[in-house]
């Protein structure tokens, strides 16, 4: 099976765990709001919407919430530097999460992501972190590295961890 299809089917299978029918209904009502998205080099508008849901959850413990827009811009710049093979893999992962099946999983929070319930997305991340399917664990690690790497690369995050920054 092609990797992309595998991601899609795997995600579809996970929908059940999140209350499939209810999720489906909510998904059908779902209208994505693209108003905050930009034209970036790698990240599509769908990717940006997805990241704008995930970034605040990955970083929810940080007292000073990082700027989602800056984080997304940094992620995009970093991806442009990666080898093409890795870019292909990321494209498959992000498509898998943004396509109809992936959205179903997130559907319950996605209905209105600006008012998203952090704990539900958190649960989703918990579940892929521990998932028996390696590909979903990889997805967790990939998102984790991409998002938290970009957040702590910015000086805004440093005071919260008592890091003074470079000496000059």
């Amino acid at each position: 099976m092609k990797r992309r299809h595998f991601i899609r089917n795997t995600l579809a299978a996970s929908v059940a765990a999140l209350g499939g029918v209810a999720a489906l209904q909510m998904y059908q009502q779902n209208q994505l709001d693209y108003s905050e998205t930009e034209n970036l080099g790698f990240l599509s508008k769908d990717d940006q919407v997805l990241l704008s849901v995930l970034i605040p959850v990955f970083t929810s413990g940080i007292p000073q919430q990082p700027s989602v827009a800056i984080t997304i811009a940094n992620i995009d710049k970093a991806i442009m530097l990666l080898p093409l093979r890795t870019q292909d893999e990321l494209r498959q992962l992000l498509d898998g999460l943004s396509n109809s099946f992936g959205r179903l999983i997130l559907a319950q929070v996605w209905v209105n992501w600006q008012a998203a319930d952090v704990s539900q997305v958190n649960q989703f991340l918990d579940s892929i972190r521990e998932h028996s399917i390696g590909l979903l664990q990889d997805a967790y690690v990939g998102l984790h590295k991409t998002i938290l790497g970009a957040v702590y690369a910015e000086a805004d995050a440093w005071p919260t961890i008592d890091y003074p920054g470079p000496p000059f």
Binding site: V57, F58, T59, S60, G61, I62, P63, V118, N122, L125, R129, Y140, V141, H144, K145, L148, G149, V151, Y152, A153, A157, W158, T160, I161, D162, Y163
Partner: peptide, 24 residues
Amino acid sequence: HPTISAIMLRQHGDKHFELMKDFA
């Protein structure tokens, strides 16, 4: 350093910051 540490600690949300806050 902050980025390398943040990536090494494979948690998210509160659990991640709970670790990062002791960085120093």
